[in-house]
């Protein structure tokens, strides 16, 4: 019984964060801030929803745990690859302060990768 309540709580938290992640993607001004909002919020959202369903239906728990671990590892990696890729094709991060810091521009951009 307590597992069911815990499952509902986890699932609702997860669903709310999925929604906030999508809202973040919709509202943020540039690629990097969109990635920030998208990655963090949808990762916690997916973890919460999937583990919550695992608690609601205890015989599914182990498989949902594997999906959750996979998401926790794979989501940061794909967002890192996207950030690096979009920087390399010339998207500069949005700054609302004209002399904002960007140390990555000092790195030579075209090495390796061929």
């Amino acid at each position: 019984m307590i597992l069911t309540y815990l499952g509902y709580v986890l699932t609702s938290i997860g669903v709310i964060f999925l929604f906030l992640g999508a809202l973040g993607i919709f509202r943020m001004p540039d690629i990097f801030t969109r990635l920030q909002a998208g990655t963090k919020a949808t990762t916690l959202g997916a973890l919460g929803t999937i583990l919550g369903v695992g608690l609601l239906q205890p015989e599914w728990f182990w498989k949902t745990l594997i999906i959750a671990i996979f998401f926790a590892i794979s989501n940061p990696i794909s967002s890192h690859a996207l950030a690096r890729g979009s920087y390399k094709i010339g998207h500069k991060p949005y700054m609302n302060d004209p002399n904002g810091i960007d140390t990555y521009s000092e790195v030579p951009q075209n090495e390796g990768d061929e």
Partner: peptide, 20 residues
């Protein structure tokens, strides 16, 4: 982190000051 992101996303002024 999610609490932080949620506060920033909901706030109508979008309080961000990004950089690398």
């Amino acid at each position: 982190a999610n609490w932080d992101v949620a506060k920033r996303v909901i706030n109508p002024k979008l309080p961000i000051n990004p950089g690398i």
